[in-house]
Write a protein that binds this DNA or RNA. Structure first.
Lengths: 163, 163
DNA sequence: TTTTACTTGTTATGATATAACATTTCATCT
DNA sequence: AGATGAAATGTTATATCATAACAAGTAAAA
């Protein structure tokens, strides 16, 4: 059992299953799930927190690839474009999607104490932004394509230590 | 009449009134509304779009100040901390608040065609993030302090030109 | 008026991200 | 299998965004 997000949860198999899900999805969509893309997703999954592009790059470099920045950014672009990962804008960092496959707008809770990131598993996450914006967007004539929600605050652990 | 956000609207006096509002607020809160801070807010207000820190810096430099990056970032930090401006995370850019004084979570619509930014004037903007997250945050034990919502899509003008 | 906090000036550097182009690999068609 | 066009990668260089650190000045409070 290891810490994930703000809770505890056994993910000894979740890397493998997430990778498998990505494989299946890529086969279905005729996307190339190449070695580097797979490796970057594995790195994100194994850390299970938000990582900067250069942290990923360091990891790749440590494994022998002489990886330059575009290598990481291209893999991340692929993963983000296809819904296997998200960018956390507030942190300029990337995190594996907690529920790939499901159509959703990412919604994160970000701890300002320890930078832990928890992706909310709201099924409202898909509808809520458009619902909230619906009126205003329509009034402005704006066509929403994607939306992100990022909440900052304190996770349980940091609330305790700050207390 | 000039273009603001995605619409048209007369703001010949809105710079002055926003500056005045900031003055009043700073006096009340005993904050120093210094020359640089005022000037940066004026720049943001006059452009009425999201500006990068270095664009602001260029403007300051053009006015004779030999401004280095920390000058802009400090002023922006002040303005953001005190609610006179917001950072648009997706663009790494800053924009004057459309409704300062009102307690609110910023909510933006960002055009991917022209990068125009419109701050939604939802009074739900304040409550909605916490409402949406409420259950999940409580379940996770997370204490939300701030939240931002950023929607991407196409503004009316870019919808027309893309059509 | 001394002291204290805050603000600014300045240099240097760190962190994040992309442009551009040559090369290789992959998918597909014949 | 071989041709070919699309996609991915390797690599160099550089653009863009942001902050650390410290000296000097200015304003507010005691």
């Amino acid at each position: 059992m290891t810490k994930i997000g703000f809770g505890i949860h056994d993910h000894s198999h979740c890397i493998a299953s997430a990778i498998h899900a990505a494989e299946v999805c890529c086969a279905r969509e005729k996307l190339q799930f190449t070695k580097t893309r797979r490796r970057v997703l594995e790195i994100l999954l194994s850390q299970h927190k938000a990582l900067g592009a250069y942290e990923i790059l360091d990891q790749l470099a440590a494994e022998g690839q002489n990886a330059q920045p575009p290598v990481a950014y291209r893999a991340l672009d692929f993963l983000v474009s296809n819904g296997f990962a998200h960018k956390v804008e507030k942190l300029n960092a990337y995190i594996a999607c907690s529920h790939p496959g499901a159509e959703h707008a990412p919604a994160f809770m970000i701890c300002r104490g320890c930078n832990a990131v928890h992706e909310a598993c709201l099924d409202t996450a898909n509808r809520a932004p458009k619902g909230m914006f619906g009126g205003a967007a329509q009034a402005a004539g704006f066509r929403i394509e994607t939306a992100v929600i990022e909440a900052s605050g304190l996770c349980p652990a940091c609330q305790s230590s700050a207390a």
